Simulated scan of single mutants.
Amino acid sequence: MTLTWTSKKFTDLTLPELYAVLQLRTEVFIVEQNCPFQDIDGQDQVAYHLLGHTPEGQLAAYARLFDAGQCYEQVCIGRVVVSPAWRRYGLGQELMRQAIAHCEQLFGTQPIKIGAQQYLTTFYQGFGFEQRGEMYLEDNIPHIYMERA
């Protein structure tokens, strides 16, 4: 499965793109994970939005990218998500490769920090992320801070 990848500032998202982003994040983070939380958190306006679209134009993968100082002291990747309809194609791997590459393109080569769901620690280690600190609960889900040098 080949996706078309773009990263856009909030103000450059079209209304249909924004709707698709919010729909995907709600589908996975709130409904699928059964986790009522405030997804629209005031951070979208300062983030870059990495969009992975199918040839048919469907949003299959997404992540938020933050410059250093906007989310953490380091560059940050967050809201990493692949649509349930497209998970069997290995898009999580491609999403992370693209997120790292886009961070480097947008912000230069520097450390990247994530707040990862703990069960995905091994997945993120495959991209050079290392655990930083102890497990913490975010919206009742175990998370761990990880950093890529």
Rank of each mutant, 00 (worst) to 15 (best):
G78P: 02
Y72P: 00
H53F: 13
D12A: 12
W86R: 08
R79I: 05
F10R: 07
K113C: 07
P84L: 08
Q117C: 04
T6G: 01
D39S: 00
G126T: 12
A61W: 01
A99D: 11
A47K: 06
A20G: 07
C35M: 10
A60Q: 05
T11N: 15
Q23G: 00
Y136C: 15
M135G: 09
H53T: 13
P142A: 15
L13M: 05
H102I: 03
A85T: 08
Q74I: 00
I77N: 01
E17S: 04
T14N: 11
E56A: 14
L120H: 08
A68C: 13
F107P: 04
E32M: 05
I112Y: 02
A85K: 09
G115W: 00
Q74C: 07
Q117F: 02
P84D: 14
I114L: 03
Y89N: 14
I40K: 01
V46C: 11
L24E: 06
Y119H: 15
D39N: 04
A85Q: 12
H49G: 01
E130R: 09
S83N: 14
W86G: 02
G90W: 09
M135A: 14
E104N: 10
G78R: 05
M135Y: 10
F37Y: 12
G115T: 03
E130L: 09
F10E: 02
K113R: 14
G57C: 07
A85S: 13
A68V: 09
F29Q: 11
F127E: 15
V31N: 07
M96D: 12
Q23K: 13
Q118W: 03
S83I: 06
T122S: 14
W86Y: 15
H49V: 07
D41K: 13
L106C: 09
I144P: 00
Q23V: 07
Q45M: 09
G92Y: 01
A20C: 06
Q43D: 10
T11A: 14
V75M: 15
P142N: 14
L3G: 06
Q33G: 11
F37P: 00
F123K: 00
A116Y: 02
H143F: 07
L15G: 01
M96L: 14
I112C: 06
N140Q: 14
I112A: 04
C35Q: 08
G78N: 10
L50A: 03
K8M: 03
E32T: 05
G108I: 12
L18R: 03
F107E: 15
E56M: 03
T54E: 10
T11F: 06
C71M: 13
G126S: 12
Y19S: 12
T14A: 11
T121H: 06
Y48K: 05
T11G: 05
M96E: 12
Q110D: 13
A47T: 10
P16K: 09
D44P: 04
P84M: 09
S7D: 15
Q23H: 08
A99H: 03
G115L: 02
T122Y: 07
Q93K: 15
K9L: 14
Q58D: 14
R132G: 08
V21C: 12
L13H: 07
F10D: 14
V21T: 09
W86F: 15
H102R: 13
P36I: 06
C71S: 12
S7K: 04
I144H: 03
G90S: 14
W86P: 04
S83D: 14
H102W: 10
L24N: 05
Y136M: 12
Q93L: 09
I77H: 09
A63V: 03
E17I: 00
V21S: 02
N140P: 06
L22V: 04
Q45C: 04
